[in-house]
Simulated assay, not measured.
Amino acid sequence: MDVTRFVSASGIRAYLLPVETFPGHVNNIYLILDGDLITLLDVGSGLEMSNEGLERRVAEVRERFREEVTLEQVQHVIISHAHMDHFGWTGRFARPGGAEVYVHELDARVLNNFEERLVLASKDLRVFMERAGVKPEARAALEEMYRFSKDFFKSVEIRHAVRDGDRIINGYRVHHVPGHCPGQICLEVEDLLFTADHVLARITPHQSPASITPFCGLELYLRSLQRIRRIEGITVALPGHESPIEDLAGRIDDIVAHHRRRLDRVLDICGEPRSLVGVSRTLFGDQAGYNRILALEEAGAHVEYLFERGELRIANLDEVAREPNPVIHYEARRGAI
Rank of each mutant, 00 (worst) to 15 (best):
R261T: 08
I158P: 04
P136E: 09
L120Y: 15
L120A: 15
A336S: 12
L142G: 03
E63V: 14
F152Y: 11
I169T: 11
P239Y: 06
A336I: 01
R260I: 05
I169H: 06
L192A: 07
L192T: 08
E100R: 15
H81E: 15
Y172N: 04
D85N: 14
R95S: 12
H259F: 10
C186L: 11
T282I: 12
D151G: 08
G133A: 03
L118P: 10
L41P: 03
P178L: 04
E219M: 11
I169C: 12
K150H: 11
N325W: 01
I252C: 01
V103F: 10
I337H: 12
K154A: 06
V3G: 02
D197I: 15
G278Q: 08
A249N: 02
F153T: 01
F65Q: 06
I79C: 13
H206I: 09
L54G: 00
L187M: 07
P23W: 00
F93Q: 05
T235L: 11
I32T: 12
G310P: 04
G35W: 13
N325K: 11
I168L: 03
D36A: 13
V69L: 02
H81R: 15
F128D: 01
E246D: 08
V134L: 05
A332F: 04
L192E: 06
Y15G: 02
L218H: 01
A210C: 03
F22D: 10
R173L: 13
N325I: 06
G44F: 02
S8Y: 00
M129L: 14
E137W: 10
T21S: 09
Q207K: 02
T282S: 02
A99H: 07
G300V: 04
L248W: 00
R66H: 15
S8K: 01
A9V: 03
K150I: 04
A141F: 02
A315V: 05
T235I: 10
R227M: 12
P205L: 10
